[in-house]
Simulated scan of single mutants.
Amino acid sequence: MTTRGGAFYDAPGRAGLYLGHRHGGVDSPNVVMEEPAFLDELGALPGLRVLDLGCGDAAVGRTLLDGGCASYLGLDGSAEMVAAAAERLAGTAGRVERADIEDFSAPDGSFDLVISRMALHYVADLGAALSACARALAPGGRVLFTVAHPVITSHDARPEGRRTSWLVDDYFRPGPRERDWLGAAVTWHHRTIEEQVAALTGAGFALTALRECAPRPERFHGNQAELARRRRVPLFLLLAGRLPDAATPPPPPSPAPPAFRRMTRPPARRPPEA
């Protein structure tokens, strides 16, 4: 049976299995690839109202609150993850609510930054989710998210032990793909990089960053074999965008191109008659 979204992590023992993988140090690709790229793109945090879609255990919420953000709200569809997030945020101004990404809504202009880490590939309609983000953001607000790289969502193998090869197939066929993840079947939605950028800009954002989260050597603590393995294939895609500032007028329309005129040769001149 294939399970999608937050409910996947509510199976007995699966949330703990995932969190052990997610925070697994050098053995976690999130730690050595996705996390440093994400932190690079966060920018200044003081005073920001932050919404985290698919927050998991809200580990990044503590980072944001320690960095001075004004508020942090994490949403997740998994009861297990919401419980873990509530425990992690205890004693802070952050809070967490149980909700699926597809169902979230907020009053216009409620947030300054929307983030999502490794959750939007569970969502069938990325454009609708990003449009909801745009409505929830104040003018000039930003969105920053990471997803499984399309090389990964277009590849499905069930190897025993660590992968040694990756076969990409049906890359330009978007849609749901059943995958083996944490020992069970799950549905991820495959989209090319081009399609994801189009969804971002179609929701009204200007693209500000596109990164493939190359491994960071300093995070491997001298483990050259693992560094070499992580350099073989991209695992993550990061995209960021910004809404227009309300005070900034839209650019003037481009001038119309000059009318096309067919070039014709002048009529041949006949020599004067004698």
Results as ranks from 00 to 15, higher is better:
residue 146 T to H: 06
residue 132 A to S: 14
residue 76 D to P: 04
residue 143 V to D: 04
residue 95 R to M: 10
residue 108 D to S: 15
residue 72 Y to C: 02
residue 56 G to C: 12
residue 137 L to F: 11
residue 83 A to G: 11
residue 128 A to T: 13
residue 143 V to R: 05
residue 94 G to R: 00
residue 127 G to Q: 10
residue 90 A to M: 10
residue 140 G to M: 08
residue 111 F to D: 02
residue 85 A to N: 06
residue 86 A to T: 14
residue 106 A to S: 05
residue 111 F to T: 00
residue 121 H to E: 10
residue 55 C to Y: 05
residue 88 R to E: 10
residue 88 R to P: 03
residue 130 L to M: 08
residue 120 L to Q: 04
residue 63 T to P: 00
residue 102 E to P: 08
residue 96 V to N: 01
residue 79 A to E: 15
residue 74 G to M: 14
residue 92 T to Y: 02
residue 104 F to R: 07
residue 116 S to P: 00
residue 113 L to A: 07
residue 127 G to T: 13
residue 113 L to W: 10
residue 117 R to C: 05
residue 71 S to E: 11
residue 99 A to V: 07
residue 76 D to M: 14
residue 110 S to F: 08
residue 140 G to K: 09
residue 119 A to E: 04
residue 60 V to E: 04
residue 87 E to K: 12
residue 112 D to H: 09
residue 94 G to P: 03
residue 104 F to I: 00
residue 144 L to W: 12
residue 99 A to H: 06
residue 99 A to N: 07
residue 82 V to C: 09
residue 143 V to P: 03
residue 94 G to A: 09
residue 96 V to S: 04
residue 92 T to E: 02
residue 83 A to K: 11
residue 96 V to K: 00
residue 66 D to H: 05
residue 118 M to P: 02
residue 122 Y to E: 14
residue 55 C to Q: 08
residue 76 D to E: 14
residue 87 E to A: 15
residue 80 E to V: 13
residue 72 Y to L: 03
residue 62 R to D: 01
residue 76 D to S: 11
residue 114 V to L: 13
residue 108 D to P: 03
residue 131 S to I: 09
residue 88 R to G: 06
residue 119 A to H: 08
residue 60 V to W: 02
residue 62 R to V: 00
residue 110 S to E: 11
residue 109 G to E: 02
residue 92 T to D: 02
residue 114 V to N: 01
residue 133 C to R: 05
residue 103 D to W: 08
residue 81 M to V: 13
residue 65 L to H: 04
residue 100 D to R: 14
residue 91 G to P: 07
residue 116 S to I: 15
residue 108 D to M: 10
residue 113 L to C: 03
residue 68 G to E: 01
residue 117 R to P: 02
residue 63 T to M: 01
residue 109 G to L: 03
residue 125 D to V: 14
residue 100 D to G: 14
residue 57 D to I: 09
residue 143 V to L: 06
residue 55 C to E: 08
residue 59 A to H: 12
residue 106 A to T: 01
residue 68 G to D: 02
residue 145 F to E: 02
residue 116 S to H: 10
residue 73 L to C: 07
residue 69 C to N: 01
residue 145 F to H: 04
residue 85 A to R: 13
residue 128 A to L: 13
residue 83 A to W: 13
residue 84 A to V: 10
residue 146 T to E: 00
residue 110 S to Y: 06
residue 134 A to I: 04
residue 79 A to I: 14
residue 108 D to F: 03
residue 123 V to S: 06
residue 115 I to S: 01
residue 142 R to M: 12
residue 61 G to T: 03
residue 106 A to K: 00
residue 128 A to C: 06
residue 117 R to K: 10
residue 67 G to A: 07
residue 123 V to N: 06
residue 142 R to N: 11
residue 86 A to Q: 15
residue 78 S to K: 09
residue 91 G to F: 07
residue 121 H to W: 00
residue 134 A to R: 14
residue 106 A to Y: 00
residue 55 C to H: 05
residue 110 S to N: 05
residue 132 A to H: 08
residue 90 A to K: 14
residue 84 A to Y: 12
residue 83 A to Q: 14
residue 109 G to Y: 01
residue 69 C to T: 15
residue 82 V to W: 01
residue 84 A to W: 08
residue 129 A to I: 12
residue 64 L to A: 02
residue 71 S to N: 03
residue 61 G to C: 06
residue 83 A to L: 13
residue 61 G to R: 02
residue 122 Y to T: 09
residue 139 P to S: 10
residue 128 A to G: 05
residue 102 E to W: 09
residue 116 S to N: 07
residue 136 A to Y: 00
